[in-house]
Design a protein around this nucleic acid. Structure first.
Lengths: 326, 326
DNA sequence: CTGTTAGCGCATTCAG
DNA sequence: CTGAATGCGCTAACAG
């Protein structure tokens, strides 16, 4: 920067201003500085700038996973809104573990991010404590079932699970089984979907059939499908924690020659891209994945600009997609 | 930090050492400092630390996209290796645009990352210039067809395309069509796969059939499939730039009652998780996605530790998966 | 094993 | 519209 300044015959401050407040520099001066920057190949050192200005323009995001996951779409939405403002995203995956999330939050906080985004509402006390101490905006994503730490952008997984199951019942299904994304009971999204399912059955005076906990992935759906049939041969509907598990079940049914939806109705959750296209197309719940990120980004934009926000709780809703497998 | 130091009755350096070189501090002192840190809720300021030490422990990654993409898996591999060493990942998507990639690289460099990872080998001159000036390790990922800027971890998309097509020919296919991920001819991975395909046809004395450029996505595969049939009704094989496009084609064939593989053989690329499970399962090329990230992470680990690396060019290979659609 | 000194590169005062 | 002085919070180098 010193090199640039001397080459342009100005002081360090002027160079800094050309970068951050170009309007406050006379055109002639600005041009000189700009060409000096060009000539020297100057790259501003944001680490130094951040230390002084206390603004890192960094958003820390911790998501459970990025493969066949809605998180990738959410993060995309966030970055679409915030990148044009100079923000960048620090991303890490917790593998659905609140413990790992806590470690990541701790590590991230030392980088002085201007905000932090977490998935879901389940976090360790340690995470909550550190976040409170950090005193930066926190946005939780993709669920609304309990009060957020700070702000939240999501939808009701409970309502979605309940409405989807009700719609299946209204279409004549009576004996339900459930493939639950297991091993991660800290996953409030899966849990709430499941509870919505149970509620819908109760609402209609139906008894829940078997529930099988499965691994995340197509193989989980395949294995779980067989276990469900073993547990109860006359099942006529299967609901799943997500589309990946549901598709695994669908593929297994196809290999076994079990008609879907003829003999068994099938529903997933999330509306993955493939779900509208596969044959038969998958009944599921669409959630506005990218929009969750966009809303979260806008919330941060306003908060960080010091604008007041009407509400720190944004419900983006969801919509049932009653497709061919119903 | 000052607060912690005075509370523990030591100097600032000692606090710093407890964090970074605990072995160089006497146990009793260390314990005092640790409890002072605990008591004050001290969070180290890595921005300041980085300014002085010139180490940000930040890896910048620019990938084309994260949804149904191998990039998510690669980044996962990188972070598995480097996170335990305290590195974090700055991630952004270029949307397959070298221009956007350049802007991201420029913006990222001001954050003083210790290394930068890019996908593919096609970059603008501006990107190359800035990277050269930055003088940090650069790792390009997922292709090997031209000399890298610095280091590269990938496989030969050309060879893979050629071998896959040859295998289809050996299984009796003769009239080929191709669904090419279009609109992004800067995408060297797609281009090389396609050239390998053409080479295999030439090797076997076959003439290429129609090629249709399609959008990335299932719908692209669906539309492209119909266009291919329109262009040439007696086609008996379709190769695609990737599995997503191939699956779109498969679904469209199923809806139209066109037998796959009976009437038309079908092949994708990448071996997405779904490809081994769908019915019929998809013939494709498996690439070691996570391993690309792991190898890249190890390369960086050694480079950043000052260890010499035997070769900055790692070929992780690929393997043909001749499944049911072959 | 611990402390003192100095300064990383920049943005924020405040003056002019 | 521009510049001089100051220090952000920490760590490298050296000294003891």
């Amino acid at each position: 920067m010193e090199h640039v300044a001397s080459l342009a015959g100005v002081s360090l401050v002027t160079v800094s201003r050309v970068i951050h407040e170009p309007d406050r520099v006379a055109e002639a001066t600005r041009l000189k500085v700009l060409s000096a920057m060009e000539a020297t190949g100057y790259v501003p050192n944001m680490v130094a700038g951040s230390l002084k200005s206390r603004r890192t323009k960094l958003i820390a995001c911790v998501v459970p996973s990025v493969e066949h996951s809605i998180s990738a779409n959410i993060v995309y939405g966030v970055s679409q809104v915030l990148r044009p403002l100079g923000f960048h995203i620090l991303l890490a995956t917790s593998g659905f573990s609140p413990q790992e999330e806590e470690e990541l939050v701790f590590a991230f906080l030392s980088r002085q991010p201007e905000a932090i985004m977490l998935t879901g509402l389940t976090h360790t006390p340690g995470t909550r404590k550190r976040l409170a101490a950090a005193a930066i905006p926190v946005i939780e994503l993709a669920n609304l079932s309990s009060p957020p730490i700070d702000m939240v952008v999501g939808y009701s997984n409970f309502d979605a699970g309940q409405q989807l199951t009700s719609a299946m019942i209204e279409r004549g299904r009576r004996k339900f089984g459930y493939l639950l994304h297991g091993g991660h009971l800290e996953n409030d999204r899966s849990r709430d979907r499941y509870e919505g399912y149970l509620q819908a059955l109760a609402d209609h005076g139906l008894r829940p059939g078997p529930t099988v906990e499965v691994e995340f992935g197509y193989a989980g759906g395949e294995n779980g499908f067989l276990q469900l049939l073993d547990a109860c041969a006359d099942i006529d509907a299967i609901c799943c924690s997500n589309d990946v598990i549901a598709l695994g079940a669908l593929y297994e049914a196809q290999r076994r020659g079990i008609a879907v939806p003829g003999r068994i109705g099938l529903a997933g959750f999330d509306d993955h891209d493939v779900s509208a296209h596969c044959v038969p197309s998958l009944t599921t719940v669409e959630i506005p994945k990218v929009r969750i990120g966009v809303e979260a980004g806008n919330l941060l934009r306003r908060t960080l600009a010091g604008e007041p926000v009407e509400s720190g709780r944004i419900d983006v809703g969801f919509s049932l997609k009653m497709r061919e497998t119903h």
